[in-house]
Amino acid sequence: MKVTFKIWRQDSPKSKGVLKSYETDGISEDMSFLEALDHLNEILVAKNEKVVAFEYDCREGICGQCGLFINGRAHGPHEHTTACQLHMRSFKDGDTIVVEPWRAAAFPIIKDLVVDRSAFDRIIEKGGYISAKTGTAPEANAMLIPKEIADASMDVAACIGCGACVATCKNASAALFTSAKINHLNKLPQGKPEQHRRVLDMTAQMEAEGFGSCTLTGACEVECPAGISIASIAEMNNRYVRAKLLG
């Protein structure tokens, strides 16, 4: 396959970025999108040019490190997937593919396609954990949790923190991420002791980081690799009201 990449190149957080065109040949349709970028980087190394910086870790769709805005969509043209699980067979020979970093005031660009998502870490630090002692693995069965609650908690715990929700949101809102992290713990008995403080503290940090507000467009739930529903955001709003009244 022959593909032309148009990639956002930016040397440092402060410098001005531009879209640069790179023509590549020898791409296989079985390559993942990240492998195609590796292929491009090898061409750049051979030409003694600077390689394109992009993030990845597991390359199997579970770590949340790869985050690329591909052809105008977070993680590319498919729904509920990560950039590493996108394959070149999703594109046609001769295509031009535009690759940009996540864009949000709270996610400053570090270099090229790499953004600083530590704002998410700081939201987690405000309450994305529990203080209850849960013991070792066998003790997990000591506390009985109804299956519906365990399942509902797992549905939102599936969030991998990739930031696609923020990237695709017209307001760069982190409501889907924050709601997933809050609801995951607040649904479970182990998360109950600090449930109200968790909602208030994590949402306060979300605002302090400069994320926008939620307009409930629903774009995030389409792009979310874990398929988390925006009903999760409504649930967070519900918990917020309860925390304000009872907390």
Binding site: G72, K170, A172, F211, G212
Partner: peptide, 9 residues
């Protein structure tokens, strides 16, 4: 203010 730089595409 939260999303000042928009995407090219």
């Amino acid at each position: 203010k939260a999303s000042p730089d928009r995407y090219m595409m």
